[in-house]
Design a protein around this nucleic acid. Structure first.
Length: 484
RNA sequence: GGCGCUAUCGUCUAGCCUGGUCUAGGACAUUGGAUUUUCAUUCCAAAAACCCGGGUUCAAAUCCCGGUAGCGCUACCA
């Protein structure tokens, strides 16, 4: 890998939709690459590719910026923080593109095309029918500069095409090795709708050069665009950056994960209660792996271990179940205060009133929740016991009378315990001996069911410790009442 | 259709560059078991893959060729 110049990489999304998983992964790899090579300059730049004014929306720009910030992928230069190579929105660079467009036109490396959409479509279909690579015939190349200038002045509308040289073009991809394309098959591509309306491939070619981008790290779907961009850069007299094309992130059906699918936007995951650390960790592992067997890695460890040479060539299926597992791991390792803080965004206002119950519930459910949003469903009974069928209280073959007897026994023992000593240790010390005589399941199942109103929950001692004496006895009474 | 990329357990992957240590390793999921009043956690175990065919070689998951399949691109979107 040549590192003669400062390392400058960019993430260049177009704000035509919220930041999605694939975009986040591309951003992450760029970020890791820059951080890893901070001794070589290592700058990470955010550039908004909003040349499509129809589809680009401010709200999406906002979402992208926010999502990157949330993930902790800080950039050194960008639309909201500036930098020495701005502007960082393509829509603000019209004058620059115009200058280069005029240069290409003046040098006859580009020309105006006045063909209609219908003509073009027909041409394409004909070529496809002949099993040929569909490309523009180049028939408008015949106009001289004066001729097309006159047409434009006369009000005719034309687009600007690049005179694609008919040549083989080869470049080295950091991940895939040598890649070769035959530019003769591409035809003269449209690089701008007009002098002030540049199109993607042209704008990218210009920007990557004048933002001094050293490495372009992007999705594999851009691989066929690369020769176009290199050719445009050559025509402009620019040298081109190095390229690295990341494997695609696939859905279950092995197709490219697209914005159109549900649950691809980062915000969806955030709103579902995934932690940013888990997402960063997980998407880093989609197409990349450290040298050892570790799977749970912090951002710092990721930077330490990152090596673009270890990036996979083939697409990776996004497996939510593994994400869930990883998220659970991060939740388990979070300290209680931090976890409670995060969970507060996922629960009703009134659950936040009693801090001690909330903290207790968080501690009790910590290893049971995979996502922050799971808490609401799992821990609701701590805050409010919902109605349940009395059959829930049945342990194995016990009858209702037996269950009532056991609950009454427990009740009388619990009543003897001082409110101040009503904690897990004390409760266990009192009740454990009873289970030897009356049976564990016989005593503890009805107790736990009475306390939680659920088939599954943390253990009764833990619950009582959190609920405290009065509420514990109240819930036992509720069960007793149901059994009458 | 054309062009390009890719190919190891169901999934993410290690190994491939620098052939033998690979009876192919790890993780998620699955199944069984231990712990446990339940659930979860934790622990133990099992099942599970080198796309196919040739070639090179004493030896190929690893190198070469061909096939097949999948995916991506094929816009006056990015």
């Amino acid at each position: 890998m040549k590192l003669n110049n400062e390392v400058r990489v960019r993430f260049a999304p177009s704000p035509t939709g919220p930041l999605h998983i694939g975009g986040a992964r591309t951003a992450l790899f760029n970020w890791l690459f820059a951080k890893k090579l901070k001794n070589h300059g290592g700058k990470f730049i955010l550039r908004l590719e909003d040349t499509d004014i129809e589809r680009s929306k401010k709200e999406f720009e906002k979402d992208i910026l926010e999502s990157l910030r949330w993930l902790g992928l800080d950039y050194d230069e960008g639309p909201d923080i500036g930098g020495n190579f701005g502007p960082y929105r393509q829509s603000e660079k019209t004058e620059i593109y115009k200058k280069y467009l005029e240069k290409l036109l003046a040098e006859s490396k580009a020309y105006y095309c006045f063909c209609s959409k219908e003509e073009l479509d027909k041409e394409r279909e004909e070529m496809m029918a002949k099993d040929l690579a569909p490309k523009y015939s180049g028939k408008c190349r015949k106009y001289s500069i004066e001729e097309f200038q006159n047409k434009i002045k006369a009000g005719e509308r034309g687009v600007i095409r690049f005179k694609t040289p008919e040549q083989e073009i080869e470049f080295e991809d950091l991940i895939r090795g040598n890649v070769k394309f035959n530019a003769g098959l591409m035809g003269d591509i449209v690089i701008a709708k007009s002098l002030t309306e540049p199109l993607y491939n042209f704008a990218v070619a210009v920007d990557d050069y004048d933002m001094k981008i050293s490495h372009v790290i992007r999705g594999e779907d851009h691989l066929p665009n690369t020769p176009k961009q290199i050719l445009i850069q050559e025509a402009l007299g620019f040298h081109h950056p190095q390229y690295a094309h990341l494997p695609l992130i696939l859905d279950k059906s092995k197709k490219k994960m697209s914005k159109r699918n549900l649950d691809t936007s980062l915000k969806d995951y955030r709103d579902n209660g995934y932690l940013k650390e888990a997402i960063v960790n997980f998407i880093a592992l989609l197409g990349w792996h450290p040298q050892d067997d570790r799977e749970v890695l912090s951002a710092e460890e990721l930077i330490d271990e990152f090596d673009i040479k270890r990036v996979q060539k083939s697409g990776a299926v996004f497996d939510v179940e593994k994400l869930d597992w990883l998220n659970g791991q991060y939740i388990k390792n979070l300290n209680l205060e931090k976890l409670a803080e995060l969970i507060k965004n996922f629960i009703p206002e009134k659950w936040r009133v009693d801090e001690s119950i909330l903290m207790g519930a968080v501690a009790a459910e910590k290893e049971r929740i995979k996502k922050l949003s799971d808490f609401k469903e799992l821990a609701d009974f701590f805050f409010e016991l919902s109605d349940y069928n009395k059959d829930l209280l049945i342990w194995k073959n016990m009858n209702f009378d037996g269950i009532a007897d056991n609950l009454n026994l427990l009740k009388s023992e619990l009543e003897k315990i001082n409110e101040k000593e009503f904690d897990k240790e004390r409760l266990e010390a009192v009740i454990a001996p009873l289970t030897e005589k009356y049976g564990k399941g016989e005593l503890l199942w009805p107790l736990r069911a009475a306390l939680s109103g659920k088939k599954a929950s943390p253990g009764p001692f833990e619950i009582m410790d959190i609920l405290k004496k009065a509420e514990t006895l109240r819930r036992i009474d509720t069960a007793l009442f149901k059994l009458k």
